[in-house]
Design a protein around this nucleic acid. Structure first.
Length: 793
DNA sequence: GATTTTACGTA
DNA sequence: CGTACGTAAAATCT
């Protein structure tokens, strides 16, 4: 059935979708069914009433199988068939006739028909001139059906619709007042900087550098004192210097004076300040606002790249994707400033100032750790690489004789062929997000372990497991390139997921306040992420002679937080009673044995190793509402046994279920959870179990992350007052590693304890998480220190 | 050659 | 149906 435009003729807003679907085809009306419901939901969140809008589609009939390319001549959907061309013409006539103030393009097809642009993720949220009817303005956003598939697009689409609503009161396209002066000469640039210095009323300054790799050398420097102005200068042309030495000297000298007297604004300032310090010896002491951090604090669930933030915060034309123009860098600088002004208000509006200040204060320590790096013992690296390479090759040879042919065990395809077709073993499937999804085969470690249990007499599975382990160890963690100084470096990302690529529509940006670690662009040495190094590879991270590595980790950190959140009195008492005791003295306060006693109804002294381990696993699994399958796999027991264990635990410890329920209620009310240190997170996923699971882990996980970083900052601030050297090596979510001279170990652990012991409050009860220490010559081996801290006092 | 998928390491 | 993170290699797309 033909589906035509519907809505009031004097509507200010026109919504244009792609094509009718099944429901639309039946009813003859646009946006019915599931997509229609989602549209209504979105409009409601944006404060728009659908009955006030004109609603239509580009295509007026349903294509076979809902595939829009049916209406195109070419696969890329750029040449419409006559039928579609006629509908587009009809759309043009309707726009002219009804003359809405704004046309909202829902999805890529509408975007293309109205503006000629193709990539919805690049243009969504920006006001574009309509090419179909010149003079009209278009705001593209995602199609409701895309949101049904990718629910994380929901919130940004609501923000887009709100922007469209603001624009619906007038028909004009906002005129850009921005002036950009890219690639100016040295004199002009220095004159600009001098003028900035002379005018204290220009209190803010946005700085943006473009760099070339390798080495992160500054190619272009952009500045802006006003969101409508940006200027830049080139320092490199290709690989050679663009300026005479004396000019470059003048530039940096003036720049150093300039930044000292302004509120500095940057996007991902940790990188820019890192480069300025490392390559140009310019210290940016205070950044007033890092827009990456501000965006993370306000909208941890959204992307944070400049293009995205510009679309949300500003009314400028899209500048990131319009063919690489020369104004790119000055536009970045100016728009970063504009974004900063919006975010500054947003921080207060959301009452997030404390979290913002906290994250900003972490930039220096994170940067110091990145530039400092950690030393690797080349000798041990060499022997480790040799040992594990040999082991890997032997395992491969052994496997070859058993299997009878060469197989790449890293290839999922070849593994499937071997296990499920050649050996005809029962196919193992991956977990699905929803029952509706089709099942996909897996040959991962867990599948191999299950198969090994099914066919106990066949050694091949365990051999494959061992081979893969050795292989990843060598390739990813041992055989790594060191810096000329024999160090590895990692970039600690305060805002978690560093990925700021615009294409990223798959990964969600959760970021629960923990740091992430990834490869340093400034010093690209080592395996990148230093927070996932296996124990075996940690052996090559050794102290220099006469020094010791101290590990200070929060003991049972997440469990303590969960106990307080759930109000489990028994556990709270155990943590309290054992606080400050030495490792040995803590033995009688073992929470895993406690859980085993509860689960198996045995006496404390009779708990076996298996039972203790089961207690540990059950408690952990139950905290985050894991199911029996996981438990069964983890403990190597049957499904029914696992189910029984979970049921028993639900009976002996109802506090967890109550906490889970309370969390759900809180989500229902506000969709916002606040951790014990005041960090807020809004949960925008589709309502359901996966949202809940993510939420259960949020408060414990993010509280520990913030607690540790608070301690790290306190330690960093103490370093100045300490008369000897403490080298901060690593941040591992709930542990800090430092290196000191042997004789300083005792003093250092007292300093660490002072930095790390931080009281927190939950349900009107104060509590403190204890810290355990171990000392050794490498990152892998450390001996526990037996200290009773109560006797210290 | 670029992007997506699969697998795997840590807390 | 633990969650969170980043990276390497294979597979797939263009």
């Amino acid at each position: 059935m033909q589906v035509n435009t519907e809505g009031p003729l004097d509507a200010k807003i026109m919504l244009v979708g792609e094509a009718p679907g099944e429901e639309e085809d039946k009813t003859g009306r646009p946006f019915q069914g599931y997509a229609g419901q989602t549209l209504d939901n979105l409009l409601g969140q944006a404060g728009i009433a659908r009955y006030q809008c004109l609603v239509t589609n580009v295509a007026r009939e349903r294509p076979p199988a809902n595939k829009i390319f049916y209406f195109f001549e070419d696969k890329k959907c750029t040449i419409p068939k006559p039928k579609l061309a006629a509908w587009i013409n009809k759309l043009r006539e309707e726009i002219i006739l009804y003359n809405p103030n704004i046309i909202i393009a829902l999805g890529a097809t509408a975007l293309w028909a109205l503006t000629g642009e193709k990539k919805i993720s690049d243009f969504r949220g920006y006001i574009l001139p309509c090419t179909l009817v010149p003079g009209k303005k278009v705001l593209p956003t995602y199609h409701p059906q895309a949101i049904n598939y990718e629910w994380k697009l929901y919130f940004q689409t609501v923000l887009d619709l709100r922007k469209a609503l603001r624009h619906s009161t007038f028909s004009e396209i906002p005129e850009s007042k921005q002036v950009f002066m890219p690639n100016v000469g040295i004199q002009q640039f220095v004159t600009y900087m001098e003028e900035c210095i002379a005018r204290p009323e220009w209190d803010k300054l946005s700085v943006d550098v473009e760099t070339v790799q390798p080495g992160s050398h500054i190619e272009e420097l952009g500045l802006s004192h006003d969101p409508n102005f940006g200027i830049s200068i080139f320092l490199l042309k290709g690989r050679t210097s663009a300026l005479p030495e004396k000019d470059e000297l003048l530039l940096w000298q003036t720049f150093a004076r300039l930044i000292a007297c302004k509120k500095i604004v940057m996007q991902n300032g940790a990188y820019d300040t890192g480069v300025l310090w490392y390559n140009n010896h310019i210290l940016v002491e205070n950044i007033w606002m890092d827009t990456l951090i501000a965006a993370h604090v306000c909208w941890p669930e959204l992307p944070r790249d400049l293009g995205f933030l510009g679309s949300i915060c500003l009314d400028v034309p899209p500048w990131k994707n319009s063919s690489k123009s020369l104004v790119y860098n000055p536009a970045d600088a100016a728009n970063t400033l504009g974004i900063a002004e919006v975010l500054d208000k947003e921080i207060d509006k959301q009452d997030n100032r404390a979290t913002f200040d906290f994250e900003m204060s972490l930039i220096p320590v994170a940067l110091m750790m990145q530039l400092q790096g950690i030393e690797v013992d080349r000798e041990i690296q060499k022997t480790q690489v040799e040992f594990w390479s040999t082991k890997r090759d032997e395992l491969k040879k052994q496997l070859f004789t058993i299997v009878g042919r060469e197989i790449n065990f890293n290839s999922p395809k070849q593994m499937q062929q071997l296990l499920y077709f050649d050996l005809r073993l029962p196919v193992q499937y991956k977990r699905r997000k929803s029952v509706k999804d089709t099942r996909t085969m897996t040959t991962d470690a867990n599948a191999l372990r299950i198969l090994a249990r099914l066919v106990p007499d066949n050694p091949v599975f365990n051999l494959i497991l061992e081979y893969k382990k050795a292989n990843t160890l060598v390739n990813s963690f041992l055989n790594i390139e060191l810096s000329p100084e024999g160090r590895v470096h990692t970039s600690y990302n305060i805002t978690g997921a560093a990925s700021d690529d615009e294409e990223d529509t798959k990964k969600t940006k959760r970021s629960f306040g923990r740091w992430s670690s990834s490869g340093s662009i400034i010093l690209p040495y080592g395996s990148g992420n230093l927070q996932n190094i296996p124990k075996e590879a940690r052996k090559m991270y050794r102290t220099k002679p006469g020094w010791k590595i101290i590990q200070a980790d929060y003991s049972q950190a997440e469990a303590v937080v969960v106990a307080h959140l759930a109000g489990n009195r028994k556990m709270i008492k155990m943590f309290k009673d054992s606080f400050g005791l030495s490792k040995t003295e803590k033995k009688p306060y073992d929470i895993h044995i406690l859980k085993a006693v509860e689960l198996f109804g045995v006496l404390w002294e009779q708990v076996t190793d298996f039972q203790r381990n089961a207690g540990k696993t059950v408690r952990h699994a139950r905290n985050y509402k894991a199911g029996p399958t996981v438990l069964a796999n983890r403990l190597g027991i049957s499904m029914s046994e696992a189910k029984l264990l979970i049921q028993t635990d639900e009976r002996v410890d109802p506090s967890l279920s109550m906490w889970h329920h309370a969390t759900e209620q809180e989500l229902k009310r506000t969709r916002v959870l606040t951790n014990l240190l005041g960090r807020k997170h809004r949960f925008l996923d589709r309502w359901g179990d996966s949202l809940f699971r993510s939420a259960y882990s949020y408060i414990p996980q993010s509280t520990i992350g913030d607690l540790l970083n608070t301690a790290l900052k306190r330690l960093y601030d103490m370093l100045l007052e300490i008369p000897f050297e403490i080298i901060i090596l690593l941040q591992l979510h709930d542990a800090i590693y430092v290196m000191v001279e042997k004789e300083r170990v005792d003093e250092t652990i007292r300093i660490l304890r002072k930095a790390m012991i931080i009281p927190m409050c939950c349900n009107n009860e104060e509590f403190t998480i204890d810290v355990d220490f171990s000392v050794g010559d490498s990152w892998a081996e450390g001996e526990n220190l037996e200290i009773n801290w109560r006797e210290e006092k």
